[in-house]
Write a protein that binds this DNA or RNA. Structure first.
Length: 383
RNA sequence: GGUGGGGUGACCGAGUGGCUAAUGGUAGCAGACUGUAAAUCUGCCGGGCUAACGCCCUACGUAGGUUCGAAUCCUACCCCCACCA
């Protein structure tokens, strides 16, 4: 049910297939983020047309609104959203980082003050797992403690060790719920699997200890690398990835959380990453930045006024095959929601296609050269 | 014709003697965004020179005047609006 098969490798890069209850995911792959059970601005059909195979939801946000019991009563996230493909829910661990100032960390869990109405909400390893079972995605993430990229050894060590202790508790609760499912008690339509998250900041020794501690607690159907792209430099991020992937089991998918921008995907794939998620595709889309093979394009820019050219002539997305640049710019100038949607669609398709092409290249053994050329062309565009 | 109100940078609109090249907003231009507190945020926005500090020029309807100093006070004129004839 949660099988991962690596079909071919080239250097550290891998092409594989992940089997999940709601379908397969061919890797490498980018997963669009749908924090509030929606990829912002897009319908499930829009997302499907981008070629995305799996999307995310978020424990913290869906716990606040509408509440996991509501989603569960409506038949789980798949029925709730009408997205019938694979899904993954993040645990709320990232909010420990992003909502710093609205939360207090304790060993028992994290006390959040809701950013919506100020009410106090405790998230613990156990409740994060409970909520995710109620939401019913294919993959649940362990509740982790993410520290900023600049964190000292001491701060990173604390977050990393806590993440391991919390992993034990997540695992235990997950096993309890899986046992209930087996005996038909849970009332949950399909099983889900739990993935752990490696932490340790930018400190290699901590990263390795996190990896070892995580693997000791396995086996796992997938392993995530968290706590990157949170303020550290690119070379440091690359170093940490290179450090970890060789030490991970081959037939386990590696998920680099929160990454990335287009070049980050190729840099990650080349270093052995299989799965990515990132809000940048949709956020940049809403903010008027489109990704092109030659770097970023400001869709609001005066240069696009009157242009009849497609956004990206090489792209097969709905936006690029239908609308001229001058119209997309116009949509942003008049602040119509269609503009936000169309550029989001393009950016997602752009990353999905990057994954598809990388996969094809790995399968025919031409990934490394192609990736090098792609990256130099992208960076030459001024990025 | 009379009375009253008003003319400020692309637009709207503050400012009623020095802290004013002139508050705010809009429009415009540029940039940022990485497991989403983000359809958000930041910067620029009279002209010229400078890498920059900064310097110079031109500006608050027009023309004069008062003053060390004027968008701000005075005079005349032009234009706009309202009401009355």
């Amino acid at each position: 049910m949660f099988e991962y098969v690596v079909e071919r490798t080239e250097g550290s890069a891998r092409a594989g297939t992940l089997t999940l209850p709601h379908g397969n995911v061919q890797t490498p792959a980018f997963m669009p983020v749908g924090t509030h059970a929606v990829v912002r601005g897009l319908s499930a059909a829009d997302v499907r047309r981008t070629g995305a195979q799996i999307i995310l939801g978020n424990t913290y946000h869906l716990h606040l609104r509408p509440g996991e019991s509501v989603v569960h009563a409506m038949g789980g996230l798949h029925r709730f959203t009408t997205w019938s493909g694979p899904m993954l829910t993040d645990s709320g661990g990232f909010q420990v980082f992003s909502l710093e100032g609205l939360r207090r960390i304790e060993e028992h869990g994290v006390q959040f003050q809701s950013h919506i109405d100020g009410t106090l909400r405790m998230l613990t390893p156990e409740s994060a797992v409970d909520i995710q079972w109620q939401l019913g995605a294919d993959i649940a993430m362990a509740f982790d403690h993410v520290v900023p990229g600049q964190s000292s050894y001491e701060a990173a060590r604390e977050g990393m060790e806590r993440t391991l202790r919390w992993l034990d508790r997540c695992k235990q609760r997950h096993a309890q719920l899986a046992g209930k499912l087996d005996s038909g008690e849970a009332g949950i339509p399909l099983p889900q699997t739990l993935w752990p998250i490696i932490q340790g900041g930018i400190h290699d020794e901590l990263r390795m200890r996190s990896l070892e501690g995580t693997l000791e607690r396995g086996p796992w159907t997938g392993v995530a690398i968290g706590g990157l792209s949170v303020g550290e430099s690119k070379p440091v991020m690359h170093r940490v990835i290179e450090l970890l992937t060789p030490a991970l089991p081959v037939n386990t998918p590696r998920y680099l959380m929160g990454v990335g921008f287009p070049p980050d995907l190729l840099e990650g794939i080349g270093r052995g990453i299989d799965l990515f998620d990132c809000v940048a595709a949709t956020r940049n889309g809403r903010h008027g930045t489109a990704w092109l093979p030659t770097g970023r394009l400001n869709v609001r820019g005066a240069a696009l006024k009157g242009s009849t050219a497609p956004l990206d002539p090489d792209c097969d997305c709905e936006t690029c095959t239908t609308y001229p640049r001058g119209y997309l710019r116009h949509l942003f100038m008049v602040e119509d929601i269609l503009g936000l949607r169309l550029v989001s669609i393009h950016n997602i398709r752009f990353l999905v296609r990057l994954g598809e092409e990388a996969r094809a290249r790995i399968l025919d053994g031409t990934f490394c050269g192609w990736s090098r050329g792609w990256l130099s062309r992208y960076y030459a565009g001024g990025d």
